[in-house]
């Protein structure tokens, strides 16, 4: 093959593959900063101590605030939206609104011997 044509094809192949790699890296790296799993793990652990359920089912946002800040680092903030999935209405909103994107969610089927599901959409992060 002609030397010039060969090198041109090589440059073209490398350019395309490098562009693809950069594109993938740019789409992946910013998202990994949102710590989806951390939020889900913290929410799961919170549920095991029952205080958050008691606060949610009594619509006590002040109590939610105290429970959250006693669990997470003082350098972090949180955002919690409680939704009634059957009526599709928002029941409670607490925390820092700057963290209101990329929420993880867990639905609990009921509390106090009832079947009254609540979806907890939650995120913890640096956003105060």
């Amino acid at each position: 093959m002609n030397f010039t044509l060969d090198s041109c094809i090589a440059v073209l192949i490398l350019t395309v593959s490098l562009t693809y790699l950069i594109h993938i890296t740019m789409t992946v790296v910013p998202n990994t900063q949102h710590h989806y799993d951390d939020s889900l793990i913290i929410l799961g652990r919170l549920l095991r101590y029952y205080d958050i359920q008691a606060a949610i089912y009594t619509n006590n946002s002040e109590s939610v605030d105290v429970i959250m800040y006693s669990t997470i680092s003082h350098l972090h903030s949180y955002y919690l939206v409680v939704i009634d999935p059957e009526k599709e209405t928002v029941v409670l909103i607490c925390g820092t609104p700057t963290l209101s994107s990329y929420l993880v969610s867990i639905t609990i089927p009921g509390w106090n011997g009832t079947l009254n599901p609540r979806t907890l959409c939650f995120r913890v992060g640096v956003g105060g």
Binding site: N31, G44, Y50, I108
Partner: peptide
Amino acid sequence: EEFYIWPMEADKGILDTITTN
């Protein structure tokens, strides 16, 4: 994988809530 792993803690939280309920 990092985005969509459903952690064991979330399962345990739901199961404890269901058992208490």
